[in-house]
């Protein structure tokens, strides 16, 4: 299936605005989902990141907390969990949670390959898969473009062989965007992952429009600037009009800003607290801000 901007916009509409067949999602309070451009598969627009929060080693008490976060995530309808071999014990801790509560059928397992040696990519992927304890990954991404040419060859071959459903690339904090764009133009990618939030908006200029043009789903990492943004805003009062978009906290305010961008597919905030994952998941509920409201939100935060 060739994905185009039209496919993406169709997905957005289907997920939250006007498609008759998806009317239930357009009701106030209904969760927002997006359609993956390359297949049309629906996916909830808030996922679960594991950077730092899930790297708890063999600490049983902290592993239990992570498992509880996963359970709350799935109970709230979440699907995409994202990790990487770079995240220490995070993959192993995901596997712990999946064994403890059982692997939900809706799980969308997203991981990365992160190794400078191309030939060693497949063995790293297999090791990651065994740590998760899943039969296969849904999405594999080349982490921070490390040895991307060799790894993309591996991932495309895996996809062709039916061992993988989606292929992507990642970057963070605005690094290597020029090369990122070149790869996006030349490679048939299902997903790209970048940093985006209400104050880090560089990707709005080129990456997000390009992803929409090329029919690529966009995953958003570091939505809260690793917590720094929420810490900065914690002493400030939410504007009264935040209620108009159903945001009752800064986390929801920021997440609603991110997932309401038409090109954004899934934001993956990381947390180690059940209350936070519930709050994050609740931000998917409609209403979401429109373009004018998004502008108002960005200006408000900028001027704080």
């Amino acid at each position: 299936m060739t994905a185009t901007r039209r496919t993406v916009l169709k997905g957005v509409l289907a997920a939250g605005v006007a498609m008759p067949t998806m009317r239930a999602w357009a009701q106030p309070g209904a969760p927002t989902a997006r359609l993956i451009p390359s297949t049309g598969e629906a996916i909830p627009s808030v996922g679960l990141g594991t950077w730092i929060t899930f790297n708890v080693g063999d600490d049983v008490e902290l592993r239990e907390e992570c498992a509880a976060v996963m359970q709350a995530f799935f109970q709230a309808g979440g699907r995409m969990i994202d990790s990487s071999p770079m995240y220490g014990s995070s993959q192993e801790v995901i596997g712990y949670g999946l064994r403890k509560f059982g692997r939900p059928t809706g799980l969308f397992a997203a991981d990365k390959v992160w190794i400078s040696s191309g030939p060693r990519g497949p063995s790293q992927i297999e090791h990651s898969r065994s740590l998760w304890g899943v039969p296969h990954f849904d999405l594999l991404q080349v982490h921070n473009l490390l040895s991307w040419e060799e790894h993309l060859r591996t991932l495309h071959a895996m996809k062709a062989a039916g061992q993988l459903r989606y292929v992507g690339i990642t970057t963070s904090e605005g690094r290597r965007h020029e090369q990122f764009e070149v790869i996006m133009r030349r490679q048939p990618l299902d997903f790209v992952q970048v940093t985006y939030n209400i104050v880090d908006r560089e990707v709005e200029n080129r990456i997000l429009p390009l992803a929409a043009d090329r029919g690529m789903g966009v995953i958003i990492n570091r939505p809260f600037q690793q917590g720094a943004l929420l810490r900065r805003l914690s002493g400030r009062r939410l504007p009264a009009w935040a209620g108009d978009i159903g945001a009752s906290s800064w986390a929801q305010f920021i997440l609603k800003f991110i997932i309401s961008h038409p090109a954004v597919m899934v934001a993956i905030p990381a947390t180690s607290q059940v209350a936070h994952v519930r709050e994050n998941m609740a931000s998917m509920a409609t209403p979401l801000p429109d373009a004018a409201m998004r502008q108002r939100m960005a200006v408000y935060v900028r001027d704080l």
Binding site: I52, G57, D59, E61
Partner: peptide, 15 residues
């Protein structure tokens, strides 16, 4: 330095 931080303070001190 933050980009290389792999764990939270709580995880580190508990370790």
């Amino acid at each position: 330095a933050e980009d290389f931080l792999l764990f939270s303070p709580r995880t580190y001190w508990r370790m």
